[in-house]
Design a protein around this nucleic acid. Structure first.
Length: 340
DNA sequence: TATCCACAGGAATACGTGGGAT
DNA sequence: ATCCCACGTATTCCTGTGGATA
């Protein structure tokens, strides 16, 4: 029953997007000066995850490139390439100027100098998860390079600007800001319907099934499509043409567990231990958590380091912190209790 | 209410590592 | 073989915050 697997992958960009006309127009307008040699505005897309930010950014740039003009573009995920060096490297890669750069033999400033020499067609750089940059000075670097247009993507506006120096923050703040609301259940259902039709065939799922998936996904398109993919996989494994309600029910925790499991595999030994301790309790105060950790670990790290671990695990959606300073407690995400 | 203390998270710093350069 | 550069990891130091206590 699966006709085109790519359509259900998280990275897939549809040839036509729905329910984001306003946002797409805003972004197009910001980039429009490129069409007659002008200087476009820096665009800043923000909103919760799965709201279509990355999709719209890529879609708009692709369309601009196909229909209109000679431009270069590059997509950089700052969660993966979060250092100044790596980000600049990726940016150079997008214009084929990175071939002879072998890791650290070249100082970072050399990369920037090379970028400043660039005199090709306009260059659009999409910085996804820009709030994850360890060193936000790259924003300043890139902002100053002639011919480079930035599209910044982050979950929350203040997460990005809290770290950026005030100098560049004030400059960037004035640029085009585009907010992405969560998808409504209806919008999600119609997105799913399109994907199901292209990727799975007409009768793969009923509209009420898609609505059900949309509801549990809570506005997150990535989650919704993931659930559909898992359900379709089950149907395909059994050689039947359409998904059943039972498959959807099973796919919901499986889609969550898949992400969850991937994240757990990334953990180090110490982080695993923290996870294990937390799994034995409903919730733990930070002091008690550390005491238990220090008792069990063969070579316990400092409290500060453990705070870094917990922060990272929080970002991976494995741990939920409760409370601000004193009296904070930690607990695990409820993923495994759901899957039972 | 003033003081104290546990805690979060930023900044500076130290250390070990990998791989190209010499 | 040795040096160098940037990186990831970890520690130390520090400031700000909010709940607990005298």
């Amino acid at each position: 029953m699966i006709q085109d697997r790519r359509v259900l992958k998280p990275t897939f960009i549809p040839s036509d997007v729905v329910h984001r006309d306003h946002e797409t127009r805003q972004l197009s307008r910001a980039l429009k000066p490129l069409m007659d040699g002008g200087v476009p505005e820096t665009a800043f897309l923000y909103g919760s995850s799965g709201a279509g930010k990355t999709c719209i950014a890529k879609f708009t740039v692709n369309r601009l490139q196909e229909n209109v003009l000679d431009i270069n573009h590059q997509y950089v995920n700052c969660w993966k390439d979060h250092s100044r060096f790596k980000t600049l490297y990726r940016v150079l890669e997008g214009i084929d100027r990175a071939v002879d750069i072998h890791r650290q033999s070249t100082p970072t400033d050399e990369l920037l100098a090379r970028l400043e020499e660039y005199e090709g067609p306009p260059y659009i750089v999409i910085l996804d998860e820009a709030d994850q940059l360890a060193d936000t000075s790259v924003l300043y670097d890139l902002y100053r390079v002639r011919g480079v247009t930035l599209i910044l993507i982050a979950n929350r506006e203040q997460d990005l600007f809290s770290q950026v120096g005030s100098r560049i923050a004030s400059r960037l703040r004035t640029r085009t800001r585009i907010h992405f609301d969560q998808y409504s259940d209806d919008e999600l259902a119609s997105i799913l319907s399109d994907r199901a039709q292209w990727g799975l065939g007409k009768d793969a799922a009923t509209s009420s099934q898609l609505e059900r998936i949309a509801r549990v996904a809570e506005g997150d398109a990535r989650v919704a499509i993931g659930i559909l993919r898992m359900a379709a996989q089950q149907a395909s494994d059994r050689g039947i043409q359409s998904v059943t309600d039972t498959m959807i029910q099973k796919a919901v925790p499986e889609a969550e567990a898949e992400i969850h499991q991937k994240n757990i595999q990334q953990l180090t030994e110490d982080q695993h231990l923290l996870y294990e301790i937390l799994s034995e309790h409903d919730e733990l105060a930070s002091g008690e958590l550390y005491d238990r950790y220090a008792k069990r670990a063969s070579d316990p790290k400092t409290k500060r380091m453990v705070r870094n671990y917990l922060q990272k695990m929080t970002h991976y959606n494995l741990v939920i912190p409760d409370g601000e300073s004193r009296g904070r407690t930690y607990r695990l995400t409820s993923a495994e209790s759901v899957s039972s």
